[in-house]
Amino acid sequence: MATVTPDLQRGGGPGGEGSNVLRLGKPFRYTVLILVGAFFIIPIVASARFSFLGNNNSFSFAAYTQLFGTPQFWSTLWLSVKVGVGTVALTLVLLIPTVIFVHVRLPRLRRVFESVSLLPLVIPSVVVTLGVITSFRNLPNIIYGTPVILALEYVVLALPYSYRTFDSAVQSIDLKTLVDAGQSLGAGWIKLLRFAILPNLRAGLLGASILTFAFCLGEFAVASLLSFTTFPVFLVQVGRLEASQAVALSLIALIFTWIPLALVMIVFSQRRGARRGVGVESAIEAAVAD
């Protein structure tokens, strides 16, 4: 998952250039690529083979057809997607104003905020879970007794990924100057964000959303602790009973995460490519004209 984010950031960000690995020549690069690829692909291929294994080592879709026939498969998946979408929405609502405010008004506290955002990695998720439960105990039942509480948990737990991704995107533009320019041109905060700032942070928003969503679709501990049968919880339950179904299920989970991810990246790189296409020729023109 983590390999996705740097790629989504536009080039030229901090530390984006001058990597020593890139200078070690092609053979080395390809070797590394193949090794890393194998590391990821071999287990997937092995699982896929296993999941298609029927009786007497024959090829069979049985594991899949049985799964799709289980009502719980669809209900838990739907629950996870709902929680995921809710978490992403809530994360964005909190993240956008906070990070922008810190960059514009409290630049000196940037490091502090970043460290705080990393806390969920350090504190065991059980502790965070209990913390959130205690803090929200007095809230109405709509939140406390429903998956909404799960979304609230996930906003906090996914913060290390979402905050850092968005923060480094903001870092890569000269936010303060853009804000100053926009305000002196008469724009209020809403128009400023809508037209001049957020469009330049699309990569960061996308990255933060994808990471958060993927986190929600894969989180097990908290969901089972709070006794919600989300997709990953269902996956574990099935795994106890039926191994080949469990493997099939995790492959499906993988695909469900990959599809939106791939779609988003394709759409995104096309847009970027289109712009760059114009860019190359006109940059040459600019150089000649100047």
Binding site: I173, L178, A196
Partner: peptide
């Protein structure tokens, strides 16, 4: 008040024309 900054301050997501029109659009 119109202001020009030391660092490049054009909105990267807008063309030159859109940049110039931003204040009017607002």
């Amino acid at each position: 008040i119109g202001m020009v900054f030391q660092s490049y301050s054009l909105f990267p997501n807008m063309t030159a024309r859109e940049n110039v029109e931003f204040g009017l659009r607002v």
